[in-house]
Amino acid sequence: MKKKTSVVGWIALPILITVFCSAVICLCAIRPAEKVQTYLKVGFMDNNTVIPKSDGIEGLTIVKTDIDTEYSGKTYSEGEVPYPEYGTQYAVLECEKNGIFVPVYWGIGSELLELGGCNTPSSMPAGADGNTVISAHVNTFFHDLDELKKGDKLTVYTDYGRFTYSVRETIEFASGDKTYLRKSEDNILTLYTCEKELLGEAKKRIGVICDLEKKEFYKEAEHE
């Protein structure tokens, strides 16, 4: 006599197949989902909206601003660099060649890193003398940072001017190493992010150092 197949087995099988396929699709969809999120954030930025007191950090006011990337008026080689307020988006970093287009916030922290690149306050704002250090998450805004090569051009747009940089070298350093993040005599832009890791935390940082090629201030410096 043939054994009857259990109905429970036949009902459970579709559920198991669903769970398995869902897991496969979730793994494959991680990167596209992050890209879509980044696109939505970059493509539709709020204009001068203040988000008061983010969770977990008292007193952090995040201000998103609309930076003009198509300024066509007169520019000057010298000008004043105002220090932004902590938590304010004060710039946009662009590299046309590989599609990097990142809002840059003055400050550091997880809330700001969710919204764009972070210009470390212990470094200089774009256009000022010294080292401008900007970091961002590798799975969102700086996903293509490792594709930058020597000679590639980047532009930082701000409300007070636009600054063109050229990649001088690519760098790699351990997560605790501050060598590349220190003050500098040269006017440079240091961009860095984590090395891409599928699982777990990245121990290495990768990035580029760029030389300042051109300063274009929108207002002339006031000579005392």
Binding site: Y39, V42, G43, F44, T69, E94, E96, G99, F101
Partner: peptide
């Protein structure tokens, strides 16, 4: 649709 921003950030070409 902010197509200009999407264009400059490379989204539109994607």
């Amino acid at each position: 649709y902010h197509l200009e921003t999407m264009k400059s950030s490379g989204i539109w070409s994607d």
